[in-house]
Every structure is written in C-alpha cells, then in structure tokens.
C-alpha cells in the first residue's frame, strides 16, 4: 500500500474515483434525475407557450430553447452535487482520506458535465419533435457542441456550487453568479446548435466551436486552481 503523498499521480488516480462515486450516487437516487429530466421537458413546453404557436419562429429558435432548458435545470443539478458533500459532512471524510482538492474538483466537474450531456441528449428528441427542427448537419458535430457546451457550464458551475453551498441564500446566489459568467458559452452553444439544425453553408460552426473550446480551457484550468481555496474557506 505504498503511495506517494499528494503528487500529480495521486490526483490522476483519484479523479476517476470521485467521478465514479458521484455517478453512483446519482444512479442510486435516479428518481431525482428523472424528476430533473421532467423539469427540463416542462421548460420546453413553457417556452412554446410563451412564444406562441408560430411554427417558423419556434423552429428558428429551437437551439435556444434546448440550451435554456438545460441551463435552467443545470443549477438544480449543480447545487445537488455539492449538497451531497456538505449535508452529511462527507466533504470532511474526503479531505481526510485524503483526496486532493484538484481531484475532487475535476472528478465532480466531469460527473456534472456527463450528466448535463445526458440531459441534453434526453431533451434533444422532444426539441426536434416539438419544434419540427431536424438536425441537417452531421449528428456527431452536435454531440461535440453538446459536450463542449456542457463542459463550459460544469466547470464554473461546480466551483460556484461549492462557493455557495454553505451560504444561506445559495439557491439565489448560484444562478446570480453563474449565469452572467457563462454567457459566452450559452451564446456559442446556441449559435452552433441552431446552425447545425438549419444547415451551415458558410461553415460558421467551426468558429463557435473554437470559442467554446477557449471558454472551456480558460475555466477548467482557472477553477481547478481556485477550488482548493473555495473548499478550505
């Protein structure tokens, strides 16, 4: 049982453990995930009612509805993912195991990103059916947009969920801090998705993917650096 103390190898070894643990918890409490998916679908219906029954308008904005419903559901998911750690003091047990803060952050952020991708996948068929917006470009590109977009929400989302987890008004503060920050990610995801749905003769999707990638690189590195300070505080 010889282990090197807290080195990068330790971090890399622990990330998949934290990821697996978070996914196991969500699987064991899957009725909650089901409720979240239902909430996302309800939002899709609400957007249609709010906008009106004009088929052309709905189709034109199908990508926007998809991402708005994922985004609004994401705060519930993100808050829940930190709630596990804080409510029973499991975070203390992890800290003493010892799990490094970086491993904890990347494991949790990956688990959250994976769940968001799954949520997008669940919401996509209803979006196509409800708004009559078939995907004209290769589906693989849409998967890529979904992965990059969800990763962009998950990294700052996990950090801000940790930052607000112990505060009295966390339900309010998490979206207040998170939503303005991920405007670029939302813009790029919506634009890219809409282009993939309506067709992309000018080849503009590439630049939006580039923006998403830049956003992800910035916040996955910055949040990983700062997470230790957040949970120590």
């Amino acid at each position: 049982m010889a282990r090197t103390p807290g080195g990068p190898a330790d971090v890399l070894r622990q990330i998949p453990m934290i990821l697996a643990k978070d996914l196991l918890i969500e699987w064991r409490a899957r009725s909650r995930a089901f409720a979240l998916a239902c909430f996302a679908l309800t939002l899709l219906l609400l957007f249609s009612f709010a906008v009106g029954a004009d088929a052309a308008t709905l189709r034109a904005h199908a990508g926007a509805y998809l991402w708005m419903s994922v985004l609004l559901s994401s705060t519930l998911l993100l808050a829940q993912s930190l709630q596990h750690e804080v409510e029973g003091g499991a975070l203390d047990t992890l800290t003493l195991a010892p799990v490094s803060p970086a491993a904890l952050f990347y494991g949790k952020a990956l688990a959250n990103a994976a769940q968001l991708v799954l949520l997008t996948a669940v919401a996509l068929p209803p979006v196509i059916a409800l708004f009559d917006a078939p995907v004209k470009e290769p589906l693989g590109l849409l998967v890529l947009v979904s992965v990059l977009g969800c990763a962009g929400v998950a990294a700052p989302g996990t950090l801000y969920a940790a930052l607000t987890a112990r505060l009295a008004s966390k339900q309010l503060l998490l979206p207040l801090l998170l939503f303005p920050l991920i405007v670029p990610c939302l813009l790029a995801s919506v634009k890219a998705t809409s282009l993939l749905m309506s067709g992309d003769p000018m080849g503009q999707v590439g630049s939006w993917l580039g923006l998403l990638l830049a956003f992800d690189v910035l916040y996955w590195s910055l949040c990983g650096l700062l997470f230790g300070r957040v949970i120590a505080a």
Partner: peptide
C-alpha cells in the same frame, strides 16, 4: 457530529 458519509448510498 455529522455523518461524514453519503445519505443516498
């Protein structure tokens, strides 16, 4: 005082 474990598992 707190459990230190996961309630859902």
């Amino acid at each position: 005082h707190s459990l230190g474990l996961y309630e859902d598992l």
